Structure formats: structure tokens, C-alpha cells
Amino acid sequence: MASHPLITHVTVLNTLDPDTPLLDDLEPVRAVTEGARVVALGEGAHFVHEFTLARARLPRHRAAWTGPSPTPGSTMRSP
């Protein structure tokens, strides 16, 4: 039986807990989003609790390696 063609793009998360201090399981996301100014997060189905938990970890992971994003409504200024 042949493996699924997307299997090389699958990442198993260590936890869905959005408060966990460890974010290294999200490191594969970095390769896909590095250099992007905007990252949009969609969802495969509405009201799937596990997806909501996993998605809550992504902004923390991105901020850990890029620095925090400006808060909504704030004005970004050049140095």
C-alpha cells in the first residue's frame, strides 16, 4: 500500500495545551512561515475544540522567534 502523498508534510504535536512552555514541536511551521509579514490561520471545520487549542499555540511560537507583533490598532513607526 502506497503512503499518502501529504505524509511528508504532517507534523504531530506533543500537546494541545496552549499554556505549555515548550513550543519546539511547532518548529516545522517556522520553515513554512519564515519571512512572511502576515500569516493567516484557517480551520478545517468550525467548532473543533482541538484545532482551537493547537491554533492558540501558533502566535506564541512565532513571537518566540520573531519578536512580538504590534497590538491591533497600534501604529508602527520606523526607527
Rank of each mutant, 00 (worst) to 15 (best):
E43N: 14
A2V: 12
M1Q: 12
T11C: 12
D25L: 03
A64Q: 09
T66S: 11
P5T: 01
L41N: 09
T71W: 09
P79W: 03
A2F: 10
R30H: 06
P18I: 01
L53G: 05
A2H: 14
L58S: 00
E50Y: 11
L22A: 14
V48K: 13
R55H: 06
P59W: 05
I7E: 15
A31Y: 05
P72C: 00
A2I: 10
M76G: 09
A31Q: 10
E27C: 03
P28S: 04
L6E: 09
H46A: 13
H61S: 02
N14C: 01
L53K: 11
T71M: 06
L53F: 12
A64R: 13
T11W: 05
E50G: 15
P28I: 01
R55M: 07
T33M: 03
A36H: 11
S74F: 04
E34L: 11
G67S: 02
G73P: 10
H49Y: 14
S78D: 10
D17R: 10
L22K: 15
P28F: 01
H46V: 13
A54C: 01
P21S: 04
L22Q: 14
R60W: 01
A31M: 03
A31R: 10
M1D: 12
V38D: 15
P79C: 04
N14S: 07
P72M: 00
G42R: 07
D17N: 15
S78W: 07
H61L: 03
T15I: 03
L23W: 06
P68W: 09
V32G: 03
I7G: 11
H61C: 00
L23H: 06
V29D: 00
A2R: 14
T33K: 03
V39Y: 11
D25C: 04
T33L: 04
T33I: 11
L41T: 12
E34D: 15
W65S: 04
P70R: 05
P72Q: 03
R30Y: 01
L41R: 04
A63P: 02
D19N: 14
T8V: 08
W65N: 07
P21R: 02
S69K: 07
V29G: 00
L16P: 00
T20K: 14
